[in-house]
Design a protein around this nucleic acid. Structure first.
Lengths: 133, 133
DNA sequence: TTGAATGCAAAGCTTTTGCAATTCA
DNA sequence: TGAATTGCAAAAGCTTTGCATTCAA
């Protein structure tokens, strides 16, 4: 599957790319380049970053800013578009869907004559556990 | 004004803090620590970063991720809450207001039993000029 | 007066880059 | 085969930190 997906985006299906894409599909969670590299073992960190650039351009992954100093990446599953709730206290990350999101994004773009290609949205605060603690 | 604002947030109103806060209120645009330091002249970069931490905690400024490698900061004017449209082509940044934003944020938090304290939202794409070019 | 804030310079991290070797189409 | 990709190690930022000094309350 990864091989075909890569080729359909004009990306040469190298061993490293196939492994990384497969890993990200399975994790479907925001991960740092280092976290991904650790789980791949035979791929250099520089290559992970280079592949991320390619994947980002192809729209296969999204860049996620969780407020920690380093960038996270997440597989962009078109069937499960979502955003994140990030707990300031315990760091837990929950997925969340925003109602009428498409409509909102379209209306924002239309009003400003801006062609929105993508957007980033994260919520920060306290998760249910940490509120009571 | 900055002096009182600082003190109301339990922040000692030092010369550097007053100047930085005043500058950010006037700029009311996302700026990097370096950009701010340049305009201040007599404040070290380390101090700008340290002040940003304080201001962020106090809620006086927001952290903005424009997708470039470095963090931007913007004065958090409660009367002009807005988000950004960032042009992939020319880099121009426009402010935008999202209709019913408060309602949306509240509903997202309620559904997930998550107490949302703040959120980050940026739109990327092509501005009106770059669409036609 | 005194704890907090600042400056300077060094250290720390994440991310990028050059170049030779390797690999996929 | 030939262009694209990868590894390694060095370089390049941005951001943080230690410590002596200065400053606001």
């Amino acid at each position: 599957m990864p091989a075909q997906l890569l080729q359909s985006h004009q990306l040469k299906a190298t061993k490293q790319r196939r492994e990384l894409l497969l890993l990200m599909q399975r994790e479907h969670r925001p991960r740092t380049a280092e976290q991904l590299q650790t789980k791949l073992k035979d791929v250099s960190l520089a290559t992970v970053y280079r592949m991320m650039d390619d994947f980002l351009q192809a729209g296969l992954v999204n860049r996620v800013d969780l407020g920690h100093g380093h960038t996270h990446f997440e597989y962009a599953d078109p069937k499960h578009h979502h955003h994140h709730l990030i707990c300031d206290d315990c760091g837990r990350i929950e997925d969340v869907r925003v109602p009428n999101e498409t409509k909102i994004v379209l209306s924002v773009g239309r009003k400003a004559k801006f062609r929105v290609r993508r957007h980033a949205l994260e919520f920060f605060g306290l998760c249910s556990r940490c509120q009571t603690a």
